[in-house]
Amino acid sequence: MAVIWDGIVQALKMIVGLNRDLIVILLTSLKVTGTATLIAMLLGLPLGVWLGLSEFKGRKFLVILTNTGMALPPVVVGLFVFLMLSRYGPFGGLDLLYSPRAMIIAEVIIATPMVIGVTLATVQALDQKLVAQIVSLGATRFQLFIKVVREARLGLLAAVTAGFGAIISEVGAVLMVGGNIKGQTQVLTTAIVQETRQGHTAIAIALSIILLALAFLVNWVITVAQQKNT
């Protein structure tokens, strides 16, 4: 019990003292997850809105594919990206393995179906006549997209949050393709695994507190935004 208590105290000291190692890990996490979330959003929002608004043959198949994508085991994604980027893989020549870019690629693959899926559900939950109404007022396809995004913005915020949440807490895939290299590809989750294994309880607890605080902060901002608009 004393070890745990001691760990918590030390962890708080490290956080308050802006421990350099902690800052580097946090920044790497934010950079990788932030970039991946942004890319997933840019890909997923238009695709989700399009899937939610369109009717065509094969749409159902794409929806099933999206839902499957939402349930993709991250380690499988990690393995897939690893194989693609490994020296003998088709993209081995790009020399991306064990770099933040490789981690971003894996995270985009995990987060994009999340963003598409939640966006799709949000758009489908809109009154279907609203779409006819927007078009009948003269909107072009692009103007329709913008209007739908505005009308459904709270749900779309949730879509982006779901994507962010799926990858900030992810450990398997980023470990496989990033390699957990200190100062380069070590992120909050992989660092927690390593520090715990090596018996560095204090730093592991400190990292966990930061990870929780980050999740809380993101959800707090989103909740405030949602309450403001309802």
Binding site: D127, K129, L130, A132, Q133, V135, S136, L137, G138, A139, T140, R141, Q143, L144, K147, R150, E151, N229
Partner: peptide, 20 residues
């Protein structure tokens, strides 16, 4: 959507369907 003829036609429904 947005074509010339489409833009000469307007529509309103049973539900007002107002935007935010």
């Amino acid at each position: 959507p947005g074509s010339d003829v489409r833009r000469r036609i307007s529509m309103a429904f049973q539900s007002p369907l107002l935007f935010r």
